[in-house]
Amino acid sequence: MNNIKKIHKAEFRPIADLVTYSPMPTQSLNHLDPFLFLNHHGHQIYPSNNQGLPFGPHPHRGMETVTFILEGDITHMDSSGHQSVIGPGGVQYMTAGSGLIHAEVSSEEFKKKGGELELLQLWLNLPADKKMMEPNYIGLQKDQIPTFTLNQRKTKVQQLFGEWNGAKGAFDGNFPLTMSTIHMENGSRFEKSIPAGEQIFFYVVRGELEVNGTEVPFRHLVEFEKNTATINVEATEDTILILGHAAPFHEPIVAQGPFVMNSQEQIQEAYADYRSGKFGSWTH
């Protein structure tokens, strides 16, 4: 049952005054194909009249972001014309595709009033034949995301991609992907089957749990063996977990700055296209 390969502790990497931990990439774990990168910001409390999130306009190409807002908010703006403010419990899904410029900043209300902030951003790869697809963005508030409960309502699941327990995910992914945010009360448990050969993404955001008999504290990511068929999870504290799984692409990954492509030549092309204005203009 215990098919855990390694447990990776998130490294402390503050960004300006933003508390940030990252379990991937690190010296011990580069990526888990097709899951590329995770930043965990907070938990922290911002004072009134703060500067908010520091992610001003910047480009992306060849990948996707899934942003989980636990506390606080994010104002999203991009060069394709999308704009939204998503609050606690909401999720943003952005496909950079052929290229766009976006900003992720705090709302004017948050900057004025301050408050709690905790959010995570996960980068997903795009398969080679979709890296130049049209960019897209969807932001959903908490009440727009399908949820269900397990274990006498002690485990609450937000279904983001794919299907589980009859609940279809809020987002249609650009490759077969199953992903959930799971809130567990102390003592609750669940079991989930994983299709053969799929890569598992398993990150403990808050609390502490046991997976397949092994204890995992918060801010740790679990790397499983590829032959893992079932995961058994039991919360030993009130816990928040992000759980996803997908088939690996087995394609070359060349990542540089905000671009994720399949070759160094494509990276150079991305920088050239960005400099020449092919990612759109920033008019916000």
Rank of each mutant, 00 (worst) to 15 (best):
M1F: 06
M1C: 08
M1Y: 09
M1Q: 14
N2Y: 02
N2P: 02
N3W: 00
N3F: 00
N3G: 01
N3T: 00
I4G: 12
K5Q: 12
K6P: 10
I7W: 07
I7D: 10
I7S: 07
I7A: 11
A10T: 12
A10R: 07
A10C: 15
A10M: 14
E11Q: 15
F12P: 13
F12M: 11
R13D: 13
R13A: 14
P14L: 09
P14M: 06
P14G: 09
I15G: 10
D17S: 09
L18Q: 11
L18H: 13
V19M: 15
V19C: 13
T20H: 14
Y21C: 11
Y21S: 13
Y21K: 14
Y21T: 10
Y21N: 15
Y21G: 08
S22E: 12
S22K: 12
P23T: 02
P23N: 06
M24S: 04
P25T: 04
T26C: 14
Q27P: 01
Q27K: 03
S28H: 03
S28T: 00
L29H: 05
L29M: 06
N30E: 04
N30V: 00
L32Q: 07
L32G: 06
D33W: 04
D33H: 10
P34R: 03
P34N: 08
F35D: 07
L36I: 04
L36N: 03
F37H: 15
F37C: 04
F37S: 10
L38C: 09
L38I: 03
L38Q: 09
N39R: 10
N39P: 07
H40K: 07
H41I: 10
H41L: 14
H41D: 15
G42A: 07
G42I: 11
H43T: 10
H43S: 14
H43K: 13
Q44I: 11
Q44F: 12
Q44R: 07
I45W: 09
Y46F: 15
Y46S: 12
P47E: 12
P47Q: 14
P47W: 04
S48Y: 01
S48H: 09
S48D: 04
S48R: 08
S48Q: 07
S48T: 00
S48F: 00
S48G: 08
N49M: 06
N49I: 01
N49Q: 10
N50C: 14
N50S: 15
Q51P: 06
G52C: 01
G52L: 00
G52K: 01
L53K: 03
L53Q: 11
P54Y: 08
P54E: 10
P54K: 05
F55M: 02
F55I: 00
F55W: 05
P57A: 12
H58L: 01
H58I: 00
H58Y: 01
H58D: 02
P59W: 02
H60D: 08
H60R: 02
R61G: 05
R61L: 08
R61T: 03
R61K: 14
